[in-house]
């Protein structure tokens, strides 16, 4: 059940400059429901400001704990990056609807911090290949233990270029499911180049500026393919790629 809980920071790690992970204590009831693609709303400060919580996908779950990974982008993530082991943190979750864990081989396509949810997902599916893109090697979140290809804009790891450049090397017949997560511009570029049949089986983990995170405020809307809007927090964050109006979506 979704609850607002006080967690304990068990471990803080700086994965690379400006990218941090926090391992937080969690009970069985939370871990049982914190499936791939679901997220938590973290109260970044005990004081009133920053005012609303910040959403983070579940990166990994372990016995008695789970992990979030983030890049310092603004006030909220900056506050979080300064927490130390033993600090208390209020966490609401698990929230949203995650990936449908369908049978068949999966292709994971991630851009930058968008790959933060992949470790949790890859462990629970038949993960055939992971494609990752980032500005440089230090911005790349690797998904250990799986076959992968990567592209960096500065060429510091893998191919020089964008993750879309890797798509030509994919044998699409090998895959019956795709997970796509990253900055909106990157996801638009990828979605625009996926074969139609593959887009049909693609699940997108979306992002938006969020208010409540639990479906009430309608702040986190994403243009829907049938007109109107999806609520990123409760219709998603994981939605079928075909449910998004890719032309209208401009993202965060």
């Amino acid at each position: 059940m979704t609850r607002d809980r006080e967690t304990l920071v068990l471990e803080r790690e700086e994965l690379s400059p400006g990218i941090f992970s926090l391992t937080l204590s969690a009970g069985e009831d939370f871990l049982r429901e914190a499936g791939p693609g679901r997220f938590v709303q973290v109260e970044v400060s005990p004081g009133p400001f920053p005012l609303v919580r910040r959403p983070f996908t579940v990166n990994r779950t372990d016995a008695g704990s789970f992990r979030i990974v983030f890049e310092v982008k603004g006030r909220g993530t900056d506050e979080l990056s300064h927490l130390t082991e033993g600090a208390r943190l209020r966490v609401l979750g698990p929230l949203g609807s995650g990936y449908r864990l369908l049978p068949g081989r999966w292709l994971l396509i991630g851009g930058g911090m968008g790959a933060a949810g992949f470790p949790c997902l890859a462990d629970r599916i038949d993960c055939g290949l992971v494609l990752l893109g980032a500005s440089s090697a230090s911005r790349l979140l690797e998904v250990g233990g799986f076959s992968s290809m990567c592209a960096t804009e500065d060429g510091s790891r893998g191919a020089r270029g964008l993750v879309t450049d890797l798509l030509d090397r994919v044998r699409w017949d090998d895959f019956s499911n795709v997970a796509l997560c990253g900055p909106v511009a990157m996801m638009k570029a990828v979605a625009g180049r996926l074969p139609d049949a593959i887009l049909e089986v693609t699940q997108v983990s979306a992002e938006a500026r969020m208010g409540c995170g639990w479906g009430a405020c309608e702040g986190c809307s994403i243009p829907a393919s049938g007109g109107g809007y999806l609520k990123c927090c409760s219709d998603g964050p994981v939605v079928p790629a075909t449910s998004i109006d890719w032309d209208l979506w401009e993202g965060v």
């Binding site: 400001f49 920053p50 005012l51 609303v52 938006a208 500026r209 969020m210 208010g211 405020c217 309608e218 702040g219 986190c220 809307s221 994403i222 243009p223 007109g227 109107g228 809007y229 209208l248 401009e250 965060v252």
Partner: peptide, 19 residues
Amino acid sequence: KGNPPPRIVETRFGLLNSV
């Protein structure tokens, strides 16, 4: 349908919404 996104933005000491 409501307004096109972005519909909310946090400022230093508060929240602006245009749902």
